[in-house]
Each structure stands twice: as C-alpha cells, then as structure tokens.
Design a protein around this nucleic acid. Structure first.
Lengths: 264, 264
DNA sequence: CGCTACATTGATGATTGTCAACAAGTGTGG
DNA sequence: CCACACTTGTTGACAATCATCAATGTAGCG
C-alpha cells in the first residue's frame, strides 16, 4: 500500500471516531493551508535574522534546523520532516533564530502569521493549537537536552536511530528501512559527537548485527538490542504528535477536552 | 546574519518605535498578579504529572527545574530566579512535565491559566505576551543545547558562571559576588558534567585567579579571562529578558510594534 | 555534638576527540 | 566519456579529557 493511501485511511478513521465525541467543537476554518512554497535541495527555507512572517508545515521533503550562537558555534537542533511545523522560533523577536535547510527538493505549506494570530484570537481552537505547537516545541527541546546529556555515545546514537525509525513509522513508511538524509557530521552535531564517533558506532552496531548501514541506506535489524542500548523502552516514548495538517493539506482541528483530531 | 547583528538591528529599531508609538498602546490590565504562594526550602512548586492550572512568576527565592525521561534519567534544565516564569511546560498536555523545586524559602505570583487564556483572547497584548513567553522558552532551550554541546568542560563552566553573573546584574544585584544556591551536582547535571569535574574546574579557575570560590560563595575576579574561556564576547549575549511583572507585582504591558515595556 | 549532605582532591582508566590516510561517491567541465 | 576536484564516509593510531572510584575534609542541621 502506498504511504499516501495509508495516511488517508488513518485520517479518515480518525475523523469518524472523533466526530462522534466532539461534534459541537467543530468550527469552520479558513483553508489557509493552500499556499505553498518550494525549496530546492540545499536551499534555506529561512535563515537566522530573516524577518519572521509565517509558519510553515512540511508537505514533502526533509530538512535540518540549525541554531547558532554568537561566537559562530552551530548546532543541528532537529531534522524536520513531513508534518512538522517550522518557524516557531521567530515568534518571540519577530526574526528567525534558526536556519532551516532542505536536504532534498521540498515543499511546505505557508501559514502567514497574521492569519494565525487572527485565527488564534477568533477561535478557541486556534488559540489552543497555537499554544500547543509552542509548548510542544519546548518539550522537544527538553527531550533533546536529555539526549545530549546521555553519557555514552552509544546510547545517543541508538536513541537517534530509534527516534528516526519511529517518526517514519508514524508517517506510514517503513520503520526498519530508511535513508539517512543527513551527513555523519549533521548527526554528530545533533548528538553532540564528532562525525568519526558516529561513523564508528554505526559500524560497530553493524558488526554486532543490530543494524545494517551502507552509506545512508539503513536497516534496523534488532530493535530489542537497540532499545536496550538506548536505555529506554519502546512504550516509554513521547505521546503521539498531532499533525497540524493532513496529507492533503487540510487544516486539522484540535478538540479541547481530549487530544483528538477532527478533520475539517 | 549573525545573531548579534540581528539583535543589534532589532534593538535599534525597537528604540525608535517605542518612543513614538508605544504610549497609545497602553490598555488597562487586570491586577491578576496579586495572588501569591509560598514555597518552603526543598519543597516542590509543582512536579511532573501534576495537573496544570496556573503559571507562576517568581517573586522571591531560587529554584531548579528538572526534566526527567521515562527511564528515570533526570536533568536540571534551569535555575529560575526572581522574575522568571514557571509552568509553561504544562500547557501542551495539561500536566506538568517538569519538577520545580525551591532552593530557599520562596514566593511566587500565581496566574491562573484560565485567566491567562481569557486575557490572551480578549486583549492583543495578552495574546502577544503569552506567545512570547512560550517562544522565549524555546530559545532558552536552544541556548542550553548549545551549552551542552560546547566541547570543553572548561567552556561550559565559564559560560555558566558568566550567565549567572549577568542574571544577577539584571536584577540589580552584584554581578561579581553571589552565592551559588545549587549543589555541584546540580551544576553538573545542568552542564552535562560530573560533579567532580565541576568542582575541579572551579578550583582550577581559582588557582588561575579568575574567580574566588569558597563553598558556594563566589567572586568573579577576571571577567575578560572568563569571557575568553567561554568563547563568547560580553555583548554577544541574549537580549534583555522582559519581565512579566515589576518588583512590586504589577503586571507589565508588552507593546505590539516593538519590544518595549509599558508599566501599567 | 554527631550525623548527614556536600565539597575537594587524587589516582586511574575508558571514552571520545583529534589527526591522518584512504576509499567511495558525486558533479563538473574538457 | 573520462579526468578531475570535491564532498562524504571509513578506519587506524594516538592523545586528551573527563568519568569513575575512593579517601578525606567541611559545613549545615537536628
């Protein structure tokens, strides 16, 4: 089954189930998610210092986001992919604080921030959604800090692989076979390690039979072993991230009383 | 563009606009900041899993905030003090994700979240303030990640000391003499180091004449040296953090077009 | 006053960063 | 189409930093 089909099915079911419980919560929503922007491989969606005017939702492609300190130190803070929201870092100051660069030819939905603000003012759902997007970003930051302070490099790499795998699974793709879009250096920066350490550990995991790597082609062979190395358990992971848009680009509606979604 | 350049640009623009446009932005604000809560030394203001119902602004005292992962790993994510806002992490799920513990007998203003929501819906200023509080927390997270990925422990400790010094200065206290409220272990957790490493580096800094430490009594003796170790420059630091309340507990008002403050 | 938590310091070894060489893949231009 | 430069990835040798273990000292608190 194609990934699109799988997602459509899930979305449909989700809509049905939730509609029963929270019909009164449904309110009309402007189809602002129609505006799109293409970003070519290697190009930046936006850079630190750019004036902030819109949020973006990834529709296709893979990105990396980079935070940089004044002294020139740069760190990869994330690898956004389909369904992820970008640009939240610009809300505070009105200027983006991060660079976001595309790994491949990508496409994003553009949500002009003025509209988001309006929507956030006019509807309780909009307000909730905006708040939760921001709050989730904070939680993501905490998770990353915990990752960075994980003592052993082995542990960090294992967590990284499992996390990526889980994200692909949620998108309806294979959780055991995927392509690493980023370089070893990007991974290293994200994990607070040198690229050689990353390379060595991937090779090590392969020798142990936990994974198979050939360049960026990756297969997860032994999940239990990786979970053991990661120090976590499969279910100990974060709650499911609610998408803002469905695969067709329709805005979703966040109900109040539960964490469910209603398709508009 | 570098962060420094962006900040400089913003500051300049902000200054200009503030003088011209801000006064008309003033609107009445409910004095919700009057409700208080005391927290005794060692007690938790809230803990992970507690239902979220309010935000807090520190009025007096010192805290540490702790993020914990499912496997039991705990990390210090910050050392909130007077003027800092606590509880933002609970907005997403309705339950707090962090523990916040007082180092001394402390007092906080309580801002019931229902009021914040109402205020955020009814006034443009409220909306802005809420958003910016959240967005700032995201930026703070990025800064901490950069700190954690600073390669050398020496650098991390230097940054930690300078950051603390700067925060005290902003509160009108001495930037060169202060007391570390937290243990070496807390510092280590915050910096991703072992407590022994922290202790050793503080001793080392003292031998070099950069600081003087005696237990938790700390004097900063050689700022230039510390800046050099930190890899930063004094002005490369964060923009001034806007307080939510002034020292008397009056709510402040954030104007729209700039980053200035107007006292209500 | 003794207990407990906290801090300092030393010795040691493991993990990881650094430097270096080389291989493999990618894109460019002749 | 091939040669070439360039980026990326792998692997080895070595050194340095930092974690670990352990002993001792110190301050705060009942």
């Amino acid at each position: 089954m194609s990934r699109t089909a799988a997602n459509a099915m899930r979305a449909k079911e989700s809509a049905r189930v939730r509609l029963a419980g929270a019909p009164s919560q449904v309110t009309p929503l402007k189809p602002a998610g129609r505006m799109r922007r293409r970003v070519r491989r290697g190009e930046a969606l936006f850079g630190a210092g750019d004036p902030f005017s819109a949020l973006f939702v990834v529709r296709a492609g893979h990105f990396k986001s980079l935070a940089s300190s004044a002294n020139g130190q740069v760190q990869v803070t994330g690898f956004p992919m389909v369904g992820d929201v970008l640009g939240l870092d610009g809300i505070d100051t009105g200027f983006h604080q991060c660079d976001v660069v595309a790994f491949d030819n990508a496409e994003v939905f553009v949500l002009p921030f003025a509209e988001c603000e309006q929507w956030s003012r006019d509807t309780a759902n909009g307000q909730r959604l905006m708040r939760r997007l921001l709050a989730r970003e904070i939680t993501r930051g905490h998770d990353h800090m915990l990752l960075l302070s994980a003592t052993r490099a082995e542990q960090r790499v294992a967590i990284f692989l499992l996390d990526l795998s889980e994200r692909y699974r949620r998108l309806g793709e294979s959780r055991s076979r995927f392509v690493l879009r980023m370089t070893r250096q990007d991974i290293g920066s994200f994990l607070g390690l040198q690229l050689e350490t990353v390379s060595r550990l991937l090779s090590h995991f392969q020798r142990e039979g936990f994974i198979q790597v050939q360049g960026r082609e990756t297969s997860m062979l032994d999940f239990p072993a990786l979970w053991r190395l990661s120090g976590h358990t499969p279910d100990s992971h974060r709650p499911v991230i609610e998408p803002l848009l469905d695969p067709q680009g329709n805005l979703l509606h966040v109900a109040d009383t539960d964490n469910g979604l209603v398709r508009m």
